[in-house]
Design a protein around this nucleic acid. Sequence first.
DNA 1: GTCTTGACGTTTA
DNA 2: CTAAACGCCAAGA
Length: 117
Amino acid sequence: MIKSINDKNADFFENVFAVVKLIPKGRVSSYGAIAKYLGSAQSSRMVGWAMNASHKMDGIPAHRVVNRQGLLTGKMHFGSPTLMEEKLKLEGIEVVNDQISNFKTLYWDPSIELNID
DNA sequence: GTCTTGACGTTTA
DNA sequence: CTAAACGCCAAGA
């Protein structure tokens, strides 16, 4: 469980990394969902920016994070434009034309799955 | 120190 | 219905 979320002392990036790490295998989440979960519903851009910083970090499954449409918009930042898609496929996620087919089914919303009290 | 860009999402025209 | 602008915060030039 993420305890630092309520703590304003925690950095936005850390919160993003924490949530992304919590994404179950074979599931995907959206920048907006994470941003909203962190309290910055309209700051989805920052989530993407945080992901960019995750490049130098390990254990950040950024490939499980896509945009609201389920499109692999950030695939180009994985070193290879196909690396993200391949990784998702390895987890059993069906990707067609850089888009997740069963995105609606694989969608993982932190504010719902984590069940906040 | 100021301006532009950015892995998005929502709202208005 | 589609198209465009706005908002949000941060970092690079």
